[in-house]
Structure formats: structure tokens, C-alpha cells
Design a protein around this nucleic acid. Structure first.
Lengths: 238, 238
DNA sequence: ACAAAAGTGTTCAGCCTACACCCATGG
DNA sequence: CCATGGGTGTAGGCTGAACACTTTTGT
């Protein structure tokens, strides 16, 4: 699909007034990052619309796969953003004229949109992001230092960041942010980064091992002082 | 709004392809019940559509207030149901002809709908349900004995029932199912009913009191054998 | 030899569990 | 005075918190 078809025929291809946004979270050198796309002079969350013959979940999953290049990324529903004023006619107008396209006052994009937000946890090293036809480039941004963003996307991203903080205490799913094979110190650092506070190393390790989720592999050879850590991966659940 | 306006002009008043459904849960004689409306020969969850100038949350809240007659009922988002096949043309056609209205093949109601589902916990005694213009009557149904229901409403209701079971272990919000003033034995029974298993009475009471959520009132005079229980109500949080 | 990193132990307090016990009330 | 229901107490076990200890490794 090219942008002309998107602008002209989007109203017939997609469910109207509904969008999907995804907050794609990665972890780089112990800083939590968020994948954003640059459109015009502002950044935005990867998102899209729901085709008439597509499940909502499917649409979210497709968007995520397209943008990250991953086969089966971890995906979870976050929230609905449905304010009555959630309408971005002015922003679209600015952008469309900036890129020298024909502005249409009654475009389907100018209407109010309810957006369904999902969030995803990925290992940045495994991703091969691709941009959409309106996007100049992509970038991974520290949650504490997000750039100027379209619409309400910044607050959506921060909502996901908060949700992750809540979730990490119950679920242990955050290993999705690491490579397939990782060490306990890596997982430990990650939990600390997400929570933003120190946790007891000994207790952490015992809790993780006791969970039975992880399978111990041979030690890695690292070239720094200190003992070599074991590697782990998630047990393939039968 | 009358049904003619609804059928003819719904497409201009509401966000298209989007609906809201609410699973309204009550507790009657230690059985969990669900408020349903009878439309034609089947029952359905109370629901509605989102006005163009209405927040999604507001719409859900309005639907809930209208149907229960309550001022400020407890409301929580449950899930999105967005299957591509979620379209009920045939059912609408049946119903519309059953009640001798004009069937229109291209009605906005015949399209695919994504529904945003909320669930609510109410004290049945406080409610004064009212029916909509398509509904014959309302009824409270045991979750284990739901009647024939429209579309996928039965599975939506059961999803809410499951969610409640999960939530009761973390949140203590289920007191919303009881009258404003209640006793510990009542709360204890309620938790047991939701979980479907016995829990230790002593421990339960201590946990609830330790939570600091409840304020002790004078004992009730009941006319059955055994000691009179204290009454409690939820502390007004400053 | 030393410092840093990784893994594991140890101790203590606090909480959960499973009962037991006591008191109030109606029949 | 007995059965029932409501409130609380208690002994044992388990878990979490805080910290200590040991081993491994590079410099």
C-alpha cells in the first residue's frame, strides 16, 4: 500500500474512528527505551488501523511485526484512550502540507479517533525496525528523555512505562527484554531498572530460580574480573 | 431518544463500528448474578454506543447509570472484543422483523462491531434497573445458569466472571457487591462465593481488619442464634 | 595480592496456616 | 443447657529481609 491509497481509500479499508498504537519497549545498556517513528518534525508511536477483515488482535500483532521485524514478539493489551477531543485535524493538516501532499478537509484522518493501545517487550538486538511510508526514520528513546511527540503519544508511552513497573512485580515476563540466553546479573539489573530501586541480589536470585521458569546453561566466559555467571534461558513449556 | 431515531440516525450520532457492553455483577443470597435485558427471544448485556461528543469512559458510565439507576457505581474496564467476524446482521434482521419494524439491509447496526467491555459491581438491593426501548424486561441471572443470549454476550459475561475471581485476590473492591453497611460474615461469604472455595474464617477476618479499609460500627441485632456481629463500612478516604 | 563479580548461606522477624477456644444468643 | 454463629488466640512452619561469606576471575 502506498500513501496515496492510504489517504484516499483508507476510509473504505479500515474501521473508521479506530486506531491501534503500540508502545514497543526495549532495554539498552540498562536504560529502558521506546521505539518511535519520525513523521515530519515530531515523533510518534508505531501504530495503524484495523482492516475491515482483520481481528483487532491480529492488526496489533501485524503492526508490531512489521515495525520490529520480529516473528513472534510479546504483546499485551494496555488500555483504551477514548477522550471525546481526541482528534488531530490540525496536526494532520500541518504535516500534509509540510510534505506537499493535497490536504483534504474531510479526510477520514481528521475525525475523532479512539485508540487501542498495546505494549510489547522486545530485545533491541533482535529487532530490524522498518519505517512506514510517512516516516523518515526510527529511533529508540529513553523514557526519561522522550522527544516532542504527536498528539497524546507521550502520555500513552508513559502510561505503558508505569504499567510495566506494576507488572514486573507479579509477572516475570520481562525476560522478553533480554536476548534468548541471558545471565542472572542481567535479569537482576533489568528488574532494578524497571523498578527504579535497588533490590536484594541474593533474594532476587533465589526467587527467580525457585520460580522454575528458567533453565540453567553452562557458564559464559566473560573477560572482566569476577566469577563467570551461569547462563539461563526460559524453559520451553511442554 | 426513541427507537426510530436510533435506527435511522444512529449512524450520525454514534462512533461507527464501536459499541460498549457492561457486565453488571450483583450478589443475591450468596449467588453471583448478572443483570441482563430481554430483547426479543434472547437476553443481552446492557450496552450502547458512543456519542460523537462523548468520552468512551463517560459513555460506559452513562450506560451503567441508566440501566442500574445508581449514582456512582463501581466501574472497571475489562477487555476489547474485536474479532473480524463480530457482526450480527442476521440477528438484527430476525429481531427487527419479529417486532414489525422496517428492516434495512444497509443499516449501521449490520456492520462489524468492536466492543469495549466494562464490568461493574453493584449491590442489587440499591439498583432500580430500567429497560431500553428495545427491551421487554430485565432480569438477574446466576452466572452458572445464564439464558440464551445474543451474539457472543455469554462468553463476555463469563470472561468478566473469571476476571472477578482473579481480582478478588488482590483488590478488596468486592465490597461494592454488598450494602453500604455490612458484616464480616457477609464479606467472608462473598469472597468464598467468588472464589468458589473455602477460606479460613479467622485469617480472613484478620486480613480484612489489618487492611485498614473498614471502619467498625456497632453490632447488629439479628434474631438468629449466635453472637451479634459488628457492622462495618468502607472508610471514607480523606 | 587485591578488588570486583557471582553465587550461596545464615539469621531473625514477620506472616500465613490450621486449628482451638471463648463468648453471645435463640430455642 | 445446648447448638449455632461470631470473634479472637496460639503454636508451628514458611517466607522474606538484611547481611555475611566464599569462590572465581582479571589486573
Amino acid at each position: 500500500m502506498d500513501y496515496k491509497k492510504f489517504l484516499k481509500q483508507g476510509n473504505t479499508m479500515f474501521l473508521p474512528n479506530l486506531s491501534i498504537d503500540t508502545v514497543i519497549i526495549g532495554n539498552d545498556k540498562n536504560v529502558l527505551k521506546c521505539l518511535l517513528l519520525k513523521m515530519g518534525n515530531k515523533w510518534m508511536l508505531p501504530g495503524g488501523y484495523i482492516k475491515n477483515d482483520e481481528d483487532v488482535d491480529e492488526a496489533a500483532s501485524n503492526i508490531l511485526k512489521q515495525r520490529t521485524g520480529l516473528k513472534d514478539p510479546y504483546l499485551k493489551f494496555l488500555a483504551v484512550f477514548g477522550d471525546k477531543n481526541r482528534q488531530f485535524k490540525k496536526l494532520w493538516q500541518e504535516f500534509i502540507s509540510d510534505v506537499n501532499l493535497e490536504w483534504e478537509d474531510d479526510s477520514w484522518l481528521n475525525k475523532r479517533f479512539v485508540t487501542l493501545v498495546y505494549y510489547s517487550l522486545v530485545n533491541i538486538g533482535d529487532t530490524h525496525p522498518t519505517v512506514g511510508f510517512f516516516d523518515e526514520t526510527f529511533g529508540w528513546f529513553d523514557f526519561d528523555d522522550l522527544p516532542a511527540m504527536w498528539m497524546d503519544h507521550k502520555s500513552i508511552a508513559l502510561t505503558a512505562r508505569e504499567k510495566l513497573k506494576e507488572d514486573v512485580q507479579h509477572d516475570y515476563n520481562v525476560y522478553n527484554l533480554l536476548p534468548e540466553v541471558f545471565t542472572m546479573p542481567m535479569l537482576y539489573q533489568l528488574h532494578q531498572n524497571i523498578l527504579g530501586e535497588e533490590i536484594d541480589r541474593s533474594r532476587f536470585q533465589k526467587k527467580m530460580l525457585a520460580s522454575g521458569l528458567f533453565e540453567r546453561l553452562p557458564k559464559v566466559k566473560k573477560n572482566t574480573p569476577g566469577s563467570n555467571p551461569f547462563q539461563y534461558r526460559v524453559k520451553k513449556s511442554l
